[in-house]
């Protein structure tokens, strides 16, 4: 019984098998999802979640055929093939999707070279550090040019600009509280805190939202402050930004750990908040929504 298939394999000689495999491959290729032949830049693989979001925002969503394993927004991406990410892009899988544009991170030079060799265009994306918001808008414009959706890209950029401007107007003239933006910490403790430094899009969003970053002077995207630094910097507002709610009773019980630092004005005046949602931590088309969410926390009276 067990030897059956093997015998069969021996009976069918190798050249015959080779032809059969070839036929199968051709058939499989012919059964691709797109009925119409793809136009230039019509098949995009994005390894960068922020760029995936931009592509969908400018209406290039249908052109996206593969995304990174960290992509969750917009919901359409869940149905697309996942092809790895920053550290583990799966070249073979990406090639099998027959893309004519691959979006890579600035540091992925090796894989970029590989795609160039295969005759595939690449779009090199870098998070802006100084001038991160303008850099995001520029990326959207550039993606518009690459995907043939200039008009929509311009529209999106205008929408984000006016969204940010609206937030800025709402909070203008109000006191700018010294704010600590926390991106993460060890659950249930004040250990391993990551906070926004004086560079990067979170810092810039906070400025739009009418707050002054307590780590304005540290020109880095993230700072790991000790409790001493937090006490010394004395933020008036403490805002935790989380892409997803961490496990456990968050934020109710978990935010209470800040009570240890009783002299921090934010703690004393009960101005410890959290905003949960990936729109506040992705430098993409939802920047204005993120800035507005921050502004609502910092200046609730401006939104009454």
């Amino acid at each position: 019984m067990v030897t059956g298939p093997r015998k069969l394999a021996r009976i069918i000689s190798w050249p015959v098998r080779r032809v059969a495999i070839l036929v199968l491959l051709v058939a499989a290729a012919g059964c691709g999802p797109a009925a119409a032949p793809p136009e230039p830049t019509q098949r995009i693989v994005s390894l960068v979640p922020a760029v995936t979001e931009m592509l969908f925002a400018i209406g290039a969503g249908p052109q996206v055929v593969g995304v990174s394993s960290y992509d969750h927004f917009p919901p359409e991406v869940e149905a697309l093939p996942k092809v790895g990410a920053l550290l583990d892009p799966d070249t073979e899988r990406i090639l099998s999707l027959r893309p004519n544009l691959v979006v890579v991170y600035g540091s992925q030079t090796e894989i970029e070279a590989r795609f160039k060799k295969a005759g595939i265009r690449t779009f090199n994306y870098r998070h802006g550090v100084e001038g991160a918001i303008p850099a995001t808008l520029d990326s959207i414009t550039a993606l518009g040019a690459v995907t043939g959706r200039d008009a929509q890209a311009r529209e999106v950029v205008t929408r984000i600009r006016s969204g940010l401007e609206a937030v800025r107007t709402r909070v203008s003239g109000r006191d700018r509280p010294r704010t600590l933006l926390v991106m993460g910490r060890q659950p249930g403790t004040l250990q391993g805190i990551y906070a926004a430094g004086g560079a990067g899009f979170l810092h810039e969003m906070l400025a739009v939202a009418g707050g002054d970053n307590v780590f304005e002077d540290i020109k880095r995207q993230s700072v790991q402050p000790s409790s001493e630094t937090l006490l010394a910097r004395a933020p008036a507002v403490l805002l935790e930004l989380r892409a997803r709610a961490p496990a456990g009773d968050y934020p109710a019980a978990d935010l209470a750990v800040w009570d240890t630092l009783a002299s921090v004005p934010a703690v004393r005046n009960r101005r410890v908040y959290s905003v949960v949602g990936d729109f506040v931590v992705v430098a993409g088309p939802r920047l204005a929504e993120g800035a507005e969410a921050m502004a609502r926390v910092l200046h609730p009276e401006a939104f009454k």
Partner: peptide
């Protein structure tokens, strides 16, 4: 008292 807190808490 920030000084006291830095000394005793941090």
């Amino acid at each position: 008292n920030v000084d006291a807190q830095i000394l005793f808490i941090a």
